[in-house]
Amino acid sequence: HQAAEQLPAGLREESLQLVSELKDSCSSCAVDVSTVWWEAAGCRELCVVTACESSVSLWKPLPSDCWSKVHTWQLAEIPVIQILPLPDTCNLVCIALGELEIAEIRLLLCSPETDSFRQSLVRSGTIKAALGLRGRRLVSSSRPGQEQQVEVVSLSETGRSKDGHTLLPPEETVVAFAEVEGMRDALVGTTALNSLVIWNVQTGQLLRKMHVGYSYPAPICHRAYSDSGLLFVAVSHPHGEESECSGSPAFHLLAFNPSTARGKGVASSSLPAGHTGRQYLEGDVKDTLAAAVLSSGTIAVWDLLLGHCTALLPPGPAGSWALTRWASSSSTSTCLLAGQRDGTVCLYRY
């Protein structure tokens, strides 16, 4: 609350407008929220997906900003820990299940032949990181033994995994992936030892490994794009901790020259005033906007190019925020999903 008061007057109220709220009454803890395009009876709509530890629900929009639950998939054996959005894909929800690490990746879908909801197993093992790619593909990194495996699988409309191929793995463990926007075959990843790697997904080649630098600790890549011969990467620092040289970093926009493997910081987004010190950030990036839940239960929004916080959403009367994700666009406006542990999800227009 103190931090919100330190923002320019009216910023909080003007930046995020509550549009609607939905409440999942699942008995277990809410773990993730996302959006998916879903087509039924010839009508294609942007739907919301909510995940609890033991179930995943699909919600379709109704008039007057209300939501109706379409279906709930039950997943009793292993807890759900993450939704893996599949860009440009309709009628498919991809989820990760596990304890501390991903043990399974499953697809949730509605079978077009029988019109029945079902699920199918895509991968199992000790998976460190996974990302849904454009063109109905999924990349994941795992370490079944000493050697790391980075694998891309194509998914069919019926949920089966089709041909898969491997990418040349770096020695360091890959902890996050991001597609390079505008370049279909370029993929980047960040590693546990502060490196950024670039692959050619088509050929499986590892093109470059570049050190991010210790000024940018434990980076998780969220978004990458190429512009004027440079590779720009938005990274977050989940374990944000105040340091003398960099303050309290939350997100950085970094620029790399892949030709020379040199890089530098372009803009830095720090924790808002009143939220310094050790933090755990759970964040998401869309375009130039970043959002994260701070340890205090407040959601903060940053403009990565400006490098400062533009909105704060303090905990409400019902409690702290636990999750936040940017929604896929259904219009020109940007929508932020904000979830609480009890399954309440609020949609805010930014």
Binding site: T203, N257, S259, V266
Partner: peptide, 23 residues
């Protein structure tokens, strides 16, 4: 960001690195 910071920039970096990297 400029070439003085990051070295010579190539617009075709992806194709060039793909041609150089081991298969």
């Amino acid at each position: 960001c400029s070439e003085s910071d990051l070295g010579p920039i190539s617009l075709n970096w992806f194709e060039e690195l793909s041609a150089e990297a081991p298969p």
